[in-house]
Nucleic acid binder design. Structure first.
Length: 290
DNA sequence: AGGCAGGTTCTTA
DNA sequence: TAAGAACCTGCC
């Protein structure tokens, strides 16, 4: 389907923003770039045709029932970006640099496990670990013939749509031994993954219920999970529960805060969108364009 | 070849 | 309460 959409949406920015780990370019250096997005047990291929116009591999009804929510289509990120204080040179440049960023609405469980994995790993390693886990415990996803045709017309190599695995369910992950988890490069996080999956499976940890909690309660509930500290809990809140005010502090943001905001970042000013500001600054700092 | 990468837990004082 | 060590693994 063709999507016309004129709010902030830059595929490259989002793919590199660090909020998602299963966005992949499937036609390497060609223009326009085609991205494959795997979210839960769904796959979408998408490319930008021209300013504000995108070509998607799915049908309209699937877009409306799932992907429009995933992309948080109803939130106006341009308006959030306009809140940036012009007298704050750093944040202004960061927001301009990352103006295509949106905060995706990702699945809480997938987010939880992904960010548990992320600790002390670089992004390629995180991706690789998630792919291995998905191949090991996910379900193979087969694409409708119509979508395969769409991909062939665009010259996408079959390996990008023949072998796709969904993100494992809590039950599937809980069914893996710690050795199996380690063979997926989970390392010392294996027991964290195992215990988190088991408690979701048993119902001891009910992610649906957590949606009802306020930000403070959500944070403490997440931090009660073995292997989840403040940073991972804020990422899961921001990306998995779409709480846009959470402001994850990792090494990059820590550097930004100590170098650029010695007197503190003005959180009050950007409430309830501090998480969006964090994304601009994180993306900008990490890009090397600072 | 050793250090380090989007942290968290465990131990110690 | 706070600082410091230990932790899997892969990749510069």
């Amino acid at each position: 389907m063709i999507l016309e959409f004129d709010d902030d949406l830059d595929l490259d920015d989002i793919a590199e923003s660090g909020q998602c780990f299963r966005w992949e370019k499937v036609n390497e250096d060609k223009d326009p770039v085609i991205f494959r997005i795997i979210a839960g047990n769904r796959v979408l291929f998408i490319l930008k045709l021209s300013e504000g116009v995108y070509d998607l591999s799915c049908e309209e009804n699937v877009f409306h029932s799932f992907w429009s929510t995933y992309f948080d289509i109803e939130t106006k990120y341009r308006e959030i970006r306009d809140r940036v204080d012009r007298s704050d040179g750093f944040l202004s440049r960061a927001a301009e640099y990352g103006k295509g960023i949106r905060i995706l609405k990702q699945d809480p469980f997938e987010c939880l496990i992904s960010f548990i994995i992320s600790q002390r790993k670089n992004i390629p390693a995180i991706r690789s670990c998630i792919e291995k886990l998905s191949a090991e415990a996910g379900e193979k996803i087969s694409l409708p013939e119509k979508e395969r045709q769409w991909l062939k017309e665009k010259g996408v190599e079959p390996r990008y749509f023949e072998d796709i695995y969904s993100f494992p369910t809590p039950g599937a992950l809980a069914g893996l031994s710690e050795d199996a988890l380690k063979s997926c490069s989970a390392g010392y996080r294996a027991p964290y993954i195992r215990r988190a999956s088991e408690s979701v499976l048993s119902g001891e940890l009910d992610l649906e219920e957590l949606c009802k909690l306020d930000d403070v309660e959500l944070m403490s509930a997440l931090m009660g999970i073995y292997g989840v500290g403040k940073k991972v809990a804020s990422c899961v809140s921001l990306f998995g529960f779409h709480r846009l005010d959470f402001f994850p502090v990792d090494v990059w943001i820590d550097r930004v805060l100590s170098e650029r905001y010695k007197n503190g970042f003005p959180f009050e000013k950007y409430r309830p969108y501090n998480g969006v500001m964090q994304q601009y600054m994180f993306f900008f700092a990490r890009s090397g364009a600072v």
